[in-house]
Design a protein around this nucleic acid. Structure first.
Lengths: 245, 245
DNA sequence: ACCTATTATTTTGCATTCATTTTTTGTCAT
DNA sequence: ATGACAAAAAATGAATGCAAAATAATAGGT
């Protein structure tokens, strides 16, 4: 006798096993991806319980694969597992954020260092293109576009490092602070923008010269400044309304 | 006795990617710790299947918590999950090792940079102590003791960075290459020893002067050299029998 | 009424069960 | 014999079931 299987469409994406970004296969993998996004996007308030049963219905699955995904998410630091008390969305303290930003800074710093060893002229040209594009956004006060292009530049540097392990770790940590990072973006006063633009120019310059140590320093300091801006934003988040967009 | 107030405190469950935590409330956590050790210690050959049923019997549990642990271990990169084909011990290619060593180098480099901001004179003194102890091991050709003291020095630097997130990530990556790193230790020719000792002196010097960028560079290069030694060892592992010990 | 103790409901953690898929084993044809 | 095919066995992935714990709801005492 066939049991009642929910026909709720759960299209299995037969993408590559691993190596890129989007891992997926088995139901568990699919649920992991969807649940991670769901959490990162902030659909559950900070510190709140993760409604196990509710999510099962939402995804149309049983508790087993969901719980497996929860364990993984906990190991990634997105949620906390309390004994006999289920999962809670991990609330990041200011200190947590500072630490995360510093680790990100370290990883980007490393990426820059490694990139100097392997980056091609074409890749540098591509980054220069992005840089000019970003400068355009800056001039047009297009905050959203600026943010996105900025992200692409940093991702390009990480990609140029030719280190999949680093790339994965970077993506992992980036995911943890994605929400904060995004909202912090709107905190960027124009003054900080100008500063960031100058820093980016220095980054490009060091990259062109393949000055590994120098680039490493610049990137670290650049991320440190980002960290400061983000933390300041969180400390006093009242003054900036969604202006650009 | 019983309070009606929801215990919303933080009965901390550091189930995040750990490395040194030896506590586990739930059965799943216990299994995770034991299974991770079991894998890291090399009880299952590289690339081999993870005998699910057998491990269940061994741990005296059902498959559910074991499979949860497997998912976490896969996310940590220790094993691979093949669709409908179970788990396999992840075999690290030379490239994987190079990448892992570079990421470790980046993290230690970061640790050194951060340590310069916060380290106390007492901590530096403690590291100096370890350095002299290590020098003694070096003179006595005590490879095992040298290795351990060396590890403690690097851990001290990471601890001085005052960044739990970094510490956790460091422990995580260290776990992945633990086996290789250990065996590579025996590959260290005396020449490399002398080199490493000089590098360590430079590390201490930079640390004393709180020269962040400089220390960052030195640590990165130090780890890079370690990487080279480890890779060389793996490439030609026949020539060195267990000499010292 | 308010606070505490007791009971009912929900939730959690793990074991067990079930449907598929994979792997092994056995059989037959070339 | 060797190889291809088919059936049996085992393993995997996910759903369900069940005992213990936690949370909510209710009753009782002051």
């Amino acid at each position: 006798m066939k049991s009642t299987i929910p026909d709720d469409g759960v299209p299995i994406t037969p993408s590559a096993t691993n190596g890129g970004d989007r891992e997926a296969a088995s139901l568990h993998g699919e649920v992991l991806l969807r649940l991670r996004d769901y959490v990162v996007e902030g659909n559950i308030p900070d510190g709140a319980r993760v409604p196990e049963r509710q999510l099962c219905e939402m995804f149309g699955i049983s508790r087993t694969p969901l719980r497996e995904a929860l364990k993984v998410l906990a190991s990634e630091g997105l949620i906390e597992l309390l004994p006999n008390r289920g999962a809670r969305i991990r609330q990041l303290s200011q200190r947590d954020l500072e630490e995360l930003f510093d680790v990100m800074a370290g990883l980007e710093s490393l990426a820059g260092r490694l990139a100097c060893e392997a980056i091609t002229d074409e890749e540098i040209t591509a980054i220069e293109q992005l840089h000019y594009e970003m400068y355009g956004r800056y001039l047009h006060r297009d905050m959203h576009g600026y943010f996105q292009t900025n992200q692409r530049i940093h991702e390009s540097i990480v990609a140029a490092a030719r280190n999949e392990t680093l790339k994965t770790a970077y993506a992992n940590f980036a995911g943890r602070i994605r929400r904060v990072r995004y909202s912090a973006n709107f905190a960027r006063k124009r003054q900080r923008w100008a500063e960031a633009m100058r820093e980016h120019e220095a980054i490009l310059d060091a990259l062109r010269r393949r000055a590994a140590s120098e680039l490493s320093d610049i990137l670290f300091q650049h991320l440190r400044n980002k960290r400061m801006a983000a933390i300041e934003h969180l400390t006093e988040p009242q003054e900036d309304a969604p202006a650009a967009l």
